[in-house]
C-alpha cells in the first residue's frame, strides 16, 4: 500500500457558534482517487479550504508528506504541491489563457521553460487552440479546463477538484473525467468533490460522505451506494 501523503487529525473549523467541520480524521494516500460527497453545507468546501490554507483549522493538525502544514499560508501549501480548482471558476481575467498558467509558474519554481510547460499542460487539457485568447472569452467547459490546467501546471502531488463538473453536459463530464484520470495515472492523488454521483462513483477508489461537518461513511463506490447512513442523507430512507 502506498504511503500517506496527506493526513488530518482532529481537524475542526468553527464559525461563531456554527461548527462547519469536524472533528475529522482523514488520510489520503499517494496516487489515490478519493471522492468526497455530501449535501450542501455538509463541510466539503470548508475541508478543502482548511487543506489548502484558505482557512486555518481551529483545532487539530494537517500533515502533508510528513510535515505539519496546519498553520502555514495558502501560497506555501500550493508551492509544496497542494493544488485546487474552484467550485465557481476563477480565471485571472485580463490575462490570456497562457498567462493564466504563467502565474503559478512564476511562483512555484518549476525547472525548465515556463512557457513550454504552460503550453504542454494546455495541450494536455485540450486548450491548445485557445492559448492566446483572453480568459473572459472561454466557454464554461473551457473555464473548467483552465482551472484544472492552472492547478496542474505547478506539478502538484495532490489535486483537489471542487465540483469541476458542475453545469457540464454528459459529454463534457467525460472530457473532464478523462483529464483527471490521466493526471492520476501520472501519480497525482486526486480529491474529487462532486454532486454528480455517477461521475464520482466512476472516478473514485474510495468515497467519503459528509453530513453537517462530520464524516459519516467511508468505502468503495459499491459500499457507499449501499450504506444506510448515506442513503438516509441522500434519499431520506
Amino acid at each position: 500500500m502506498s504511503e500517506i501523503v496527506l493526513s488530518m487529525k482532529g481537524v475542526e473549523k468553527v464559525f461563531g457558534a456554527f461548527r462547519a467541520l469536524g472533528p475529522l480524521d482523514l488520510d489520503l494516500r499517494a496516487g489515490e482517487r478519493l471522492g468526497i460527497i455530501g449535501p450542501n453545507g455538509s463541510g466539503k468546501t470548508t475541508l478543502i479550504n482548511c487543506i489548502t490554507g484558505v482557512y486555518r483549522p481551529d483545532r487539530g493538525s494537517i500533515h502533508f508528506q510528513g510535515r505539519d502544514i496546519s498553520h502555514i499560508e495558502a501560497h506555501r501549501r500550493a508551492r509544496l504541491g497542494i493544488s485546487r480548482s474552484f467550485q465557481i471558476p476563477r480565471p485571472f481575467n485580463g490575462m490570456t489563457v497562457l498567462e493564466n498558467l504563467l502565474v503559478p509558474l512564476d511562483y512555484c519554481h518549476i525547472d525548465g521553460s515556463k512557457e513550454e510547460r504552460a503550453r504542454s499542460v494546455l495541450t494536455s487539457v485540450g486548450l491548445a487552440g485557445r492559448i492566446s485568447h483572453p480568459s473572459e472569452s472561454l466557454s464554461q467547459l473551457e473555464l473548467r479546463k483552465l482551472e484544472l490546467a492552472r492547478a496542474l501546471v505547478g506539478d502538484p502531488k495532490v489535486l483537489i477538484a471542487d465540483e469541476a463538473m458542475a453545469g457540464l453536459s454528459e459529454g463534457e463530464i467525460d472530457e473532464v473525467l478523462a483529464i483527471l484520470l490521466a493526471l492520476n495515472r501520472s501519480g497525482v492523488a486526486v480529491i474529487m468533490i462532486e454532486h454528480i454521483m455517477h461521475a464520482v462513483m466512476r472516478f473514485s477508489e474510495r468515497i467519503v460522505c459528509f453530513e453537517t461537518g462530520r464524516l459519516i461513511a467511508s468505502g468503495t463506490s459499491a459500499e457507499i451506494a449501499e450504506n444506510p447512513l448515506v442513503r438516509r442523507v441522500y434519499f431520506g430512507e
Binding site: 476563477r90 485571472f92 485580463g94 502565474v103 511562483y107
Partner: peptide
C-alpha cells in the same frame, strides 16, 4: 502578473502560489 492575478481573484492567486 501576480498583481493582476490578485486583482482577478485573491483566493485563486494565493492558491496558485502567489504570496
Amino acid at each position: 502578473r501576480g498583481l493582476r492575478a490578485v486583482k482577478a481573484s485573491e483566493d485563486a492567486a494565493e492558491c496558485s502560489g502567489v504570496p
